[in-house]
Every structure is written in structure tokens, then in C-alpha cells.
């Protein structure tokens, strides 16, 4: 019989939860200054200005972080939700590439912010992939 350990994946989710809650709260709290620093000219997406978009995004990321914490705290790690978080992280990285390709007047600080966040999320996605693979291999 095989008994696998989910400690690696569980720790990754705790890390993702902490990063998401802190960065999401920061983004929501300082949405205006971040929006001004990220672009040279006012940007609007689907009729929403960038500051409001950052605020909504920040709240969403905090909720995402809370979901990660909930998953990490379950006695038995829910595999389906774990895969969903992994897919969401991949989507964030892909979305970041698309955003950078948009014809918007991003400042250097804006580009750096998007790239750094995408790299951190990509690292988390890699750790989640390794954790999921470790659990699958042991079963």
C-alpha cells in the first residue's frame, strides 16, 4: 500500500495564500497610486478606469488567497480545487503576457510590476505542479 505525503503542496498553498492576501490587500488599498504609477496616460478597460480595476482585482486576489488558505487547512487536501488553483496561477501568468501586449502606455514601473508579479506567480505554479505530481506519483 502507498501512503503519500501532501506536506509540500500544503506548504505551497500556505505560501500562495500569504502572498495573495498581502499583495491583493496592497493592490486594493493603493489602487489609485499604483494606477497612476503604472501608466503614462489614463487607461480604461471595458469602461472601468485602471484604479477601479486594480481595486477589484485586489479584492479578487484576497479572496483567491483565502481559498488557498482554506484548501491548505483541509484535513484531506481537495485535489480538484488544488488543480483549479494551479490552473488559475497559469492563467494569471498568461494574462500578464497579454496585458503587456495591450496597446497601453505602461511606464517602466508598470511593466516591472506586472513582470515581477507574473514571475512570483509562475514560481508558485511550478511548486504546485511539483506538489501535485509528487502526490499523483505516490498513488
Amino acid at each position: 500500500m502507498t501512503v503519500s505525503s501532501d506536506r509540500f503542496l500544503r506548504r505551497t498553498f500556505w505560501g500562495n495564500a500569504a502572498f495573495s492576501v498581502i499583495s491583493g490587500a496592497g493592490l486594493a488599498a493603493f489602487a489609485g497610486p499604483f494606477a497612476r504609477a503604472a501608466t503614462d496616460a489614463p487607461v480604461s478597460v471595458l469602461g472601468l478606469d485602471l484604479a477601479l480595476l486594480f481595486e477589484l482585482l485586489g479584492v479578487g486576489v484576497v479572496a483567491f488567497g483565502a481559498l488557498c488558505a482554506w484548501i491548505a487547512s483541509r484535513p484531506e487536501l481537495p485535489r480538484g480545487l488544488a488543480r483549479l488553483i494551479f490552473a488559475a496561477d497559469l492563467a494569471w501568468v498568461a494574462g500578464s503576457v497579454l496585458v503587456l501586449a495591450l496597446p497601453a502606455a505602461w511606464t517602466t514601473a508598470g511593466i516591472a510590476g506586472i513582470v515581477v508579479l507574473a514571475l512570483i506567480v509562475a514560481d508558485l505554479a511550478i511548486l504546485e505542479y511539483l506538489g501535485l505530481r509528487k502526490m499523483s506519483a505516490a498513488n
Binding site: M1, T2, V3, S4, S5, R7, F8, A138
Partner: peptide
């Protein structure tokens, strides 16, 4: 097999798994 694996689990260091 289940008993042997269970006995191993009781002896595993934190974060480790086992397979027969």
C-alpha cells in the same frame, strides 16, 4: 499489506510517505 503500511506510517518522520 494495509497493516504493514499502517505500521510504517506510525514510524514515519514528519512529511514523509511510504510505498510497498
Amino acid at each position: 499489506d494495509t497493516l504493514g503500511a499502517a505500521a510504517t506510517v506510525l514510524n514515519l518522520p514528519e512529511g514523509k510517505g511510504t510505498t510497498t
